[in-house]
Design a protein around this nucleic acid. Structure first.
Length: 259
DNA sequence: CGCCAGGTTGTTG
DNA sequence: CAACAACATGGC
């Protein structure tokens, strides 16, 4: 039985594709438009992807969209506007995306980086090569490997594979990577086993997310899984080692909140 | 209610 | 360097 990442891709694509990720927020709506995939992103679109990538860290996308709508409604989705706005007000506007104090700080760090990198415009990382662009992004406070790679892949069109919690969960269950595999290990697995193709990488990541959200959840729904036949797990085992150690404990109930 | 969500940074041993 | 804790809202 074929079970390489290419086979997984084919099965997922047949079941869920195309996903047309990354979406753009326009007119108060989140649009998944195929035509966006056929041309380079404009500078404003890249900024929106960057901000969205920060806001979606460990957060459901629907909550992020609410925050992006707030920002765009007020014409704040620009480097200049995001530089000017007080951090506390920014935090209030992106409240729905969670971790809003930290994320406001991250957005500030981002626009500061963009400004310092290219006096007044969104930095043109495209001409500097993938490795340098990635290192550059990783130097920004609040941008880790997944956020950097999302920006590079969906914003700038670099063929770099984005690894997230779903990727780790799905492919460790399949048996392709060890449960303890780190980000770079998992990314290397895909880079070694797939042609470097931006379109495929974009679609593949989005497909993994869909599988991870709807099927390959904590207690997986293997009966409806489109890649069941190549998976080592298949729901036949009674249990497996939880990938994320223990759950967070203690709910702090500090609820005075802003506003 | 309790759990979870397309991470990252700071702290600790 | 690995393992944790902190960060926080909204949906089901």
């Amino acid at each position: 039985m074929q079970s390489g990442p290419r086979t997984v891709y084919r099965l997922l694509k047949k079941a869920y594709g195309p996903r047309n990720w990354w979406p753009v927020v326009r007119g108060g709506r989140c649009l998944y438009l195929p035509e966006f995939l056929d041309r380079p992103r404009t500078a404003p679109e890249i900024l929106e992807i960057m901000v969205g990538a920060l806001l979606t860290q460990n957060t459901a996308w629907d909550n992020v969209v609410l925050a992006l709508i707030e920002l765009k409604k007020r014409r704040l989705m620009s480097v200049g506007a995001l530089e000017k706005i007080p951090e506390s007000r920014l935090a209030r506007l992106i409240r729905s995306s969670g971790y809003y104090n930290q994320k406001a700080k991250k957005i500030k760090a981002l626009v500061s980086f963009i400004r310092s990198s290219l006096a007044g415009r969104v930095v043109r990382l495209g001409g500097r090569g993938l490795d340098r662009a990635r290192q550059s992004l990783l130097s920004v406070w609040g941008i880790g490997p997944e956020t950097a790679d999302s920006i590079l892949l969906y914003g700038y069109g670099f063929p770099v594979f984005v690894v997230d919690a779903y990727t780790h969960r799905v492919f460790s269950r399949i048996g392709s990577v060890p449960p303890k595999a780190q980000y770079d290990d998992i990314q290397l697995f895909f880079h070694k086993n797939l042609k470097r193709n931006t379109g495929v990488f974009r679609e593949y990541h989005a497909l993994i997310v869909e599988l991870g959200k709807s099927v390959c959840i904590r207690t997986p729904k293997c009966l409806i899984c489109p890649i069941r036949k190549i998976c080592r797990f298949r729901g036949s085992q009674k249990s497996y080692a939880p990938e994320r150690t223990m759950r967070r404990t203690e709910n702090r109930q500090r609820r005075s909140s802003i506003r």
